[in-house]
C-alpha cells in the first residue's frame, strides 16, 4: 500500500502555491495536514500528478481576531486551536469539540482548512462551522472570495472550492457573550467518525432561543442545517422540555443517508437522539 509517484513542491508563500495550483494540464492537489489525503494516496484512491505542500506557508497558520470575528488560518492545526486561549475564551464550542476529533497524533497534523476542504460529511468541523455561521475565505491567483460555510459544503467530499483555489481562512463571528451551545455525537468508539451528531447554538445572553442554529452531521451528504427547527425554537425558553420534544419531531420529515454499518432508519433515530442530547447539553 504505497502511494503512486507524484511531483512535490513546498512553496514558502501563498502566491507561489496559488500559481502552482493554477496548472491546468496536470492534476494538482494541495497537501495540508495530510491526515485524510495521505491514506487515500497510500490506497492509491488519490493519485495526483503534483502535490503542493502548504506546510511552509506561515501566513496561513495564524489565529487573529477583531471585535467582530475570529479568523483562523487554514493551516492552523487542531492542536493549535486546542491550545489557543483566544478560541477558548471567544468560541468555547470549538474547544469542546476538538477532543472528539480523532486522536492526538492526528490532531497534531490535521488542519482546519484540510478538514473543511475535504468535506467528509461525518466529520465534526464542517457542521461546527455551519452552526457558528462561519465564512470560508478562498483564494486563487486572481483574488479572494468569501463563501458562507452553509453554501461551501455541497455534497459528500464536495465543496464550492475550485481546483485552482485554496481555502485560506475561516472567519467566525463573535458576539459580546459567546454563543451558548449544545453538542452531542454518537460513536461506537472514542475518536471515530460519528454515526450522527448535532450542534445547537443560540445567543449567549438570552433565556430564550434566539438566532439559533441547528446542524446535524454524519446523517446526510453534507452538514444538515434544519431551519424549520431553528424557526420553531426561536423565542421559546431554552429549558422547555415540550419545546425540545416538538423540535425533535420535526426531524421525522427529513430523509437521511445510511452508511456501511447503519441503515437510513437507524440514522434518523441517531439524528433525533443526538439533537435531543445536544439540546440537553445546552441546558447542562
Amino acid at each position: 500500500m504505497k502511494a503512486a509517484s507524484f511531483l512535490y513542491e513546498l512553496p514558502e508563500d501563498l502566491n507561489t502555491a496559488l500559481q502552482l495550483l493554477n496548472s491546468s494540464d496536470i492534476d494538482v492537489l494541495p497537501l495540508a495536514g495530510g491526515q485524510s489525503l495521505m491514506p487515500m494516496m497510500n490506497f492509491r484512491v488519490s493519485q495526483p500528478d503534483l502535490l503542493v505542500d502548504l506546510n511552509k506557508i506561515d501566513s496561513l497558520k495564524k489565529i487573529d481576531s477583531d471585535s467582530n470575528s475570529i479568523k483562523i488560518g487554514s493551516m492552523v492545526k487542531y492542536s493549535d486551536m486546542e491550545k489557543s486561549d483566544l478560541i477558548k475564551e471567544k468560541i468555547p464550542l470549538i474547544n469542546n469539540v476538538i477532543p472528539f476529533v480523532a486522536h492526538s497524533a492526528i490532531r497534531n497534523r490535521g488542519t482546519i482548512g484540510g478538514s473543511i476542504a475535504l468535506a467528509d460529511p461525518a466529520a465534526e468541523f464542517p457542521s461546527l462551522l455551519v452552526s457558528l455561521d462561519a465564512t470560508i475565505e478562498l483564494m486563487n491567483i486572481k483574488g479572494t472570495r468569501e463563501v458562507k460555510s452553509e453554501d461551501f459544503f455541497t455534497g459528500i467530499f464536495e465543496t464550492d472550492r475550485k481546483t485552482n483555489e485554496l481555502v485560506t481562512s475561516i472567519n467566525i463571528p463573535i458576539n459580546k457573550s459567546p454563543k451558548k451551545f449544545g453538542f452531542y455525537e454518537i460513536t461506537r468508539r472514542h475518536g471515530d467518525y460519528a454515526m450522527a451528531g448535532a450542534f445547537v447554538t443560540t445567543d449567549g445572553d438570552k433565556k430564550e432561543f434566539s438566532n439559533s442554529r441547528v446542524v446535524l452531521f454524519a446523517v446526510s451528504t453534507k452538514p444538515l442545517r434544519i431551519i424549520d427547527i431553528e424557526v420553531f425554537l426561536n423565542g421559546n425558553l431554552l429549558n422547555d422540555v415540550s419545546v425540545q420534544e416538538n423540535a425533535i419531531d420535526i426531524i421525522n420529515g427529513y430523509e437521511f443517508e445510511g452508511d456501511l454499518h447503519n441503515d437510513t432508519e437507524a440514522k434518523k433515530t441517531y439524528a433525533k437522539v443526538s439533537l435531543k442530547r445536544a439540546l440537553g447539553e445546552l441546558n447542562g
Binding site: 491514506p39 490506497f43 461506537r188 468508539r189 472514542h190 475518536g191 471515530d192 467518525y193 456501511l260
Partner: peptide
C-alpha cells in the same frame, strides 16, 4: 466492503 481499520472495528482502549 470493509477493508480498512476505520471500517472493520476492533476494540480500542476507551471502550
Amino acid at each position: 466492503l470493509n477493508v480498512t481499520l476505520a471500517d472493520y472495528l476492533v476494540p480500542m482502549a476507551a471502550e
